[in-house]
Nucleic acid binder design. Sequence first.
RNA 1: GGCCUCGUAGCUCAGCUGGACAGAGCAACCGCCUCCUAAGCGGUAGGUCACAGGUUCGAAUCCUGUCGGGGCCGCCA
Length: 609
Amino acid sequence: MPESALAAERKRVTFPLEVGNRINDGHSRMNIFAEIRGAIGSAIEQLAGQSVIPDGIDLSRMNVERPRDATHGEISTNAAMILAKPARRPPRVLAEALADVLSGDERVARVSVAGPGFLNLVLRPEEWLRAVRSALQLGMDYGRNTDGRNRRVNLEFVSANPTGPLHLGHGRGAVFGDALGRLLEYTGHDVTREYYVNDAGSQVDILARSAYLRYLEDAGLDTDFGPESYRGDYLIEVGKSLHEAYGDRLLNTPESRWLPEVRDFAIKRMLRLIKSDLKLLGIRMDRYFHESSLAQDGRIDQALKALRERGLVYRGKLPPPKGRRSVDWEPRRQTLFRSTAHGDDVDRPIRKSDGSWTYFAPDIAYHHDKIARGYDVLINVFGADHGGYVQRLRAVVSALSDGKAHFDIKLIQLVNVVQRDERLKMSKRAGNFVQLQEAVEAVGADVLRFVMLMRRNDAPLDFDFEEVVEKTKDNPVFYVQYAHARTCSVLGRAEAAGFRTCDANLAEVDLGELRHASQIAFARRISEWPRVVEVAARHHEPHRIVFYLTDLARDFHAMWARGNREPELRILDESDVPGTLARLALARASAVVIATGLEILGIAALEEM
RNA sequence: GGCCUCGUAGCUCAGCUGGACAGAGCAACCGCCUCCUAAGCGGUAGGUCACAGGUUCGAAUCCUGUCGGGGCCGCCA
């Protein structure tokens, strides 16, 4: 798939994933599950009106879902079981009563009560087919919702130290964050993508010294790279640029003189590298927040003041680390944050015993700043190695927002580079850790994005360079793209045969032609899409989109192949115009959903392969 | 030793946040192209959901403990 990154980028930028507004009243109409949920809610109210059950029962635990087992109907709900306790009536009795009401609903074909009190519904086929029409009418907006309206989200991700280009592991966090951002935008959230630049710690001093060594090298001096320096080739050019910019002025001067300037210079260059890596993946940030700005503006002190006002700062000594035998442990008095008051296991140091800030201090200030900027939701995407950090950050956000901010930390597990089932451990020392740029060049941004999203964020991911570009059904990226390409292929052929295949036209065809059980089943799959979006967004889990698309693609391939065996299921049949139009509508609806899903993941759908 | 996280078919993983007899894809076995892309599809077989308790009408899912893998572990960022 040699699609250029640039073309992909262009396509991404033009796609309207901004806040939706077209479907305010269309939301419930296009999501059959939400509709039926509403119908059950009305049925419950009706029973409450007849005093069968009390008013105002909490229905948050009520499920309206597709049962795994087809014999349990098309939609099932546990409503009666939820009601049983507060109503003090057996669930089956309540289920019967609800069934009675619901059987009067024109959308419902059959209702039955099963097991301990499940209510199983079978809808009239038209209800499922309506999803097909919605997909054709709404296009990319089919599935969109407004759950996130009036919710401002700060999404912090990547935040890699500006000491070198990104590697594959960063790439996973980057792709995850970006896809999550897109998903949240699709569901009406106002998202700010933010990158926290650690440009104030000792890491960047090491960077500065490493760049300086390259500068000396470029000036023709013998240089000795100690163990404490970054050796990457990417610094050679920085040394050269330093030499060009400063001439020999930095030679023979004490470190204290050149370090700040060289550091700023090097950081700028590293950020440029990082931004270009992100661009390869089609990712843009709304804001780069520099750690250094916090100390300059006195915002660390402000944040500390805010904590102090809440009585959460004190001077004291930490207990020794539990269990771990540490010979040189001795208690020291320092400034501590009482994070235990907000769920942490131990209080955390803000200042070292010499009075300087710990790394934690700017983080407190940074999150103080995020809260002050008025976000309703804060999301941090971290590498799994930051796991030990989440509790104290939770405590900070809880304390500074007085428990109001919704805070979610997503830990991204490792990426294992795999070759023919052998694991190569990625490590800087072994020199085999893969740079993001290499990976994108090897497999393309779209494939890389898809693969990175195939696993839950908290499960390790195996990445096999060879497998992901294979053109077989073993490769899920290909599999999904192929399904889309096939729909395009058949639509193209239909067009050539004289069918009017534009969406507006297909949206008007008589879907009643779709009578076969497999076709209704396919429509049911299309109907699930809005619900998948809703759940994925609610749980901040973009991988659900990937799994759904894989399922949808499988259904499509199956439907297609079936047409080879059973001629009446063949999509294109010039002797049957109305049937063909209906089947084209079904195929086109699946293409719309695949393209939309891929777009949420930041991937362009392919029209041919 | 403490905290976090994971443990589901031979392998890689889902499991709609507590629902009804546990689901896919690989791999294995058996089938399907004079016909829209076989770059594909259908079928068979395969699991005490690590283990033991507990909560519940109901647990892979929640709680406790044990075992096993990974990560982090005063003033490093």
